[in-house]
Simulated scan of single mutants.
Amino acid sequence: MSEAADSSTESRPVRLREALRQARIEAADRTGVVVDLRDAEVARLEILSDALDPLFDEIPGQIDLFDRGISQGETPRLWIDVVAHVVMGRDKRQYRFVQDTRNGRIVLAESHDLAAIVKAVTDYVARRMVERERAFSVAQAQAQVIEPPRRRGGVWPFVLGFVLGALSLFGVALYESLKPMYF
């Protein structure tokens, strides 16, 4: 029985080692799949970015609202501006155009169709540019209203007051000097 006991103890570690080896291989395969999925997401976002090139070429250079770029983190994103971005959906084939607001994240568009997302981004860019124009027109109107009234010759009233004060003191001194003196 000692040989049987020795063979049973030797077979357990071998099986555990084999199981650990197999588990490591599976984990590496899953990691490879995750990396492949992430690369596929980035590739789809790059395709969308290329489709948006004509839109961003039309935006005038002095408008600096938009800063398009792909961030490659745990979840790759195509940023349109500071608050809006496109991310891939759960099935990794669906585009989801979202905007972060004070009240949370809202989905502006969601589609498998690239053209639908391009149209949604185009509409968003147009709305942001109109908001910018309105903000600048309101700011200019407020600047015109707040402009202080122009002063008319601020030095001349001071000089006139100084001369009148000096003449008054001279008059009081003259009056006091001409009064008869009584002891």
Results as ranks from 00 to 15, higher is better:
D91M: 11
G32M: 09
S7P: 02
P54Y: 10
T75Q: 13
R30Y: 09
R132K: 14
Y175N: 01
L114Q: 11
L160I: 15
I117C: 02
A51F: 00
A84I: 02
T122M: 08
E133D: 09
V130H: 06
A139T: 06
R12N: 10
L114T: 13
F158E: 07
D50T: 08
L45P: 05
G153C: 11
P180V: 09
R93C: 06
P13H: 14
A126R: 12
G73C: 15
G104A: 06
I59R: 00
R30L: 11
G89R: 09
D57I: 07
A143F: 01
G154K: 10
V155S: 01
E133G: 06
A141G: 11
A43Y: 04
G154W: 05
R24A: 15
Y95T: 00
V138M: 06
V98K: 08
E147N: 07
Q22G: 10
E18P: 08
V14F: 14
D81G: 00
V118W: 01
F170G: 11
L16Y: 14
S168G: 04
E74C: 13
Q62P: 13
A139G: 05
V14L: 15
D91N: 14
E110H: 02
L78M: 07
A126C: 02
R134W: 10
L45C: 00
M88S: 05
D91K: 06
L20E: 15
D39V: 12
V86P: 00
S137F: 07
T9Q: 09
E110V: 01
A19Y: 09
R150M: 11
S137E: 13
L178R: 11
F136R: 08
